[in-house]
């Protein structure tokens, strides 16, 4: 079942990537990132099972924690951007340009 799990993981990850590349709604892009994280988690779990060790699961816990933190900060950023632009369209987010 390991190979199948890794296959699903790869497909989910790629779907996430394609989503990030095709959408312009910042919240949806954010959710695509969450999907990619989940795909990686699936790989961790599968490989943890393969090795018979729980260390991979520990990493999944960490990833979830960081994802939660990231969601909190990222959504806060999106809120403040929305306040400014009245939109979450990615095309408006170009403050990185120096």
């Amino acid at each position: 079942m390991i190979a199948e799990a890794l296959f699903f993981s790869a497909v989910l990850f790629t779907i996430g990537v394609v989503g990030v590349l095709t959408r312009r709604n910042a919240i949806i892009i954010f959710m695509c990132v969450e999907l990619m994280l989940n795909a990686v988690n699936l790989s961790f779990i599968a490989l943890s099972r393969l090795h018979g060790s729980a260390n991979g699961q520990v990493f999944v816990l960490f990833v979830m924690t960081i994802a939660a933190a990231e969601a909190a900060v990222g959504l806060a950023i999106i809120i403040s951007i929305f306040r400014h632009h009245k939109s979450v369209d990615l095309r408006n987010i170009n403050l990185l340009k120096g």
Binding site: V20, L21, I29, L90, R91, N94, L95, L96, K97, G98
Partner: peptide, 14 residues
């Protein structure tokens, strides 16, 4: 490359 557009950075990362 440093356009400041987030989408462009996403493409670059991909």
């Amino acid at each position: 490359l440093q356009s400041g557009e987030t989408g462009a950075y996403a493409w670059a990362i991909a």
